[in-house]
Write a protein that binds this DNA or RNA. Structure first.
Lengths: 341, 341
DNA sequence: CTGAAAGCGCTTACAG
DNA sequence: CTGAAAGCGCTTACAG
């Protein structure tokens, strides 16, 4: 069943059928409807491969999940990106694009390049916990189009790569201000990996908020950790050992907050009565801990949608403007309380 | 840069290049290597659309995420399927297949049918929390190939649909036996939705295990719930109100167990000291609750891999055998303890 | 064993 | 406005 068969059945030329497919106006309504009915009856759908071959467009976006043996595996350990993946797929679909999902290892990006070269995709989006600078450089130097979801995956930004930007500093300020407003003055921070720009920016935001409130930044209250649970535990143990546990802690991500929460409980400290805890990211888990964790919600869906929008606009050669930066917003649950008198 | 250009550069006929692409033996090693080198230098990859057009094979599997407004949304609320999705993608990739991921609503499967009709995919796999019987029937009656991940999505099974089968009854028996072995005799069960076959099978397994141990099945200890947290809470509240709380509870899935855990805590009962709790599924959350939840691990990755294998074998017209059934295995964490003397 | 030709199912540019 | 032809980049069946 091809376009020619439809034409024969309808008693018109192939061209007329083509016009119907293209929503071209120059077909009489009557004829158009007859043709549409025949297509419907025969479940006709134009062959995608044939169309792609001549149009040189695939209407397909490659979603590259770049795994790193050393990090959380997206799709198994990871609780942050599944929402993003879903949002990307939905957003593409709304724009009439299909999504080809591929997993690749960070040190072997050749499957990704292959997809571009064999013309399976028009553009790609990278999701990863690692630096993907080298992959991106390769894609760019081959003159293909790629977007990156997370600004921390790249060491140098460039306008040629669509990428949503999260204002980490301002968001961290907001988290810290929340603790300040509850009357806390002894506020600690457990930072993320210091080679990660987001970690540094969040630390800066914390410091700014304290200064803004006229509170001295106490170096002892800055615990340099990594973006993992273990750092939360370590920090709490450290502070308890020093006999100087802050009354509120800003955890640079939710995983750190889980670690801190567990360690505090084990040490017989109640959250939030003895210590207030706030996280960052708002991963799904935060609703399930007890107490449920207050945190900063990263607008992952909006960021994903904006990324897809800009990428597709570029693919289609439409005018586009780079996305405006995103802010995380405070989600108040049950892990923060007013400072005890 | 097409196959003809490569041929010209190598000074051979197009046919010879073709032979190299097909790994055909009848090309002199010397010539083959020269051609391969030229392809490499020019980053040549045969155009996928052209090849598909003539081969009438896409080497692509459609992964259909069928959402239901009334249920958990896969990719946002769901903690069970992300592992499955990852496994499907990986397994396909190992077999040289691409994966086109599509979301559709349970009451509007037409985007799914379209993918088959326009020849974007060779076969599909359905992942869903709902019944997809009508979609599957439509696909089958149009003579396309589809696999279903979860046996509960279908009301009648048929050998024409590849589908991994989990032995719910035997697995539930094992969970119950674990509680029995810890010396518990007052063992309750919180069931899942009774219109869900898995829920019924798990209930049967629970009853069988008790009988096997010579313990009377006490109707009061069977709480008919649904596969959601709320049922866990409700059951605990109910039993406490009745003044007859079991000393151990088999929760028909992990979400129920979370609900039970929370309600028990709120009621001042310690898990596992006062009440032992075991779940089912082993979703990611189970490691994060306190105490961490003992549960039955559903071998989702193995099931996904087997499903992909069988599906691709069918696509390729290879001989295949239907998968053998799968068993959940006990994962012991910290939510079960020996019965107090 | 090699080469020239036809064909996959569309789209598009070009005559009539 | 309509129709016949060429072409997208491959593969395959068919002569030589």
């Amino acid at each position: 069943m091809d376009i020619f068969d439809i034409a024969k059945l309808a008693g018109v030329s192939r061209k007329t059928v083509q016009r119907v497919l293209n929503d071209s106006p120059q077909v009489r309504t009557e004829t158009r409807e007859r043709i549409l009915k025949i297509m419907e009856e025969h479940q006709y759908q134009p062959n995608v491969s044939a169309r792609r071959l001549v149009k040189k467009k695939t209407h397909t976006i490659g979603l590259f999940i770049i795994q790193d043996p050393g990090k959380d595996r997206i799709y198994s350990d990871d609780l942050f990106y599944s929402v993003v993946i879903g949002a990307v797929i939905n957003a593409c679909s709304l724009r009439g694009y299909k999504v080809l999902v591929t997993m690749a290892e960070v040190d072997n990006p050749s499957p990704v390049l292959k997809l571009y070269r064999e013309k399976s995709i028009d553009a790609g989006i990278i999701i990863s916990w690692s630096s993907v600078q080298s992959i991106v450089d390769e894609i760019l130097s081959a003159n293909f189009l790629v977007g990156v979801f997370d600004q921390n995956n790249l060491t140098h930004r460039t306008s040629s790569i669509p990428m949503p930007v999260l204002e980490n500093e301002a968001s961290a300020m907001e988290a810290t201000r929340h603790l300040l407003q509850l009357g806390h003055e002894e506020i600690g921070i457990i930072t993320g990996d210091q080679d990660n720009p987001a970690a540094v920016e969040r630390l800066n935001g914390y410091q700014k908020a304290l200064k803004e409130a006229g509170i001295r930044v106490k170096p002892e209250y800055i615990y340099t950790g990594r973006f993992v649970e273990e750092s939360g535990r370590d920090a709490v143990h450290h502070w308890i050992r020093q006999g100087d546990l802050p009354s509120a802690i800003f955890c640079s991500n939710d995983h750190i907050a889980f670690g801190a929460l567990k360690a505090l409980k084990e040490a017989g400290r109640d959250v939030p009565r003895d210590v207030s805890l706030i996280g960052f990211d708002n991963i799904l888990l935060t609703e399930y801990t007890s107490p449920a964790l207050s945190t900063m919600n990263v607008p992952r869906v909006e960021m994903a949608v904006a990324l897809v929008e800009e990428l597709i606009q570029r693919v289609e050669g439409e005018p586009y403007e780079t996305m405006s930066p995103f802010q995380a917003t405070l989600v108040i649950r049950n892990s923060c309380l007013e400072k005890k008198a």
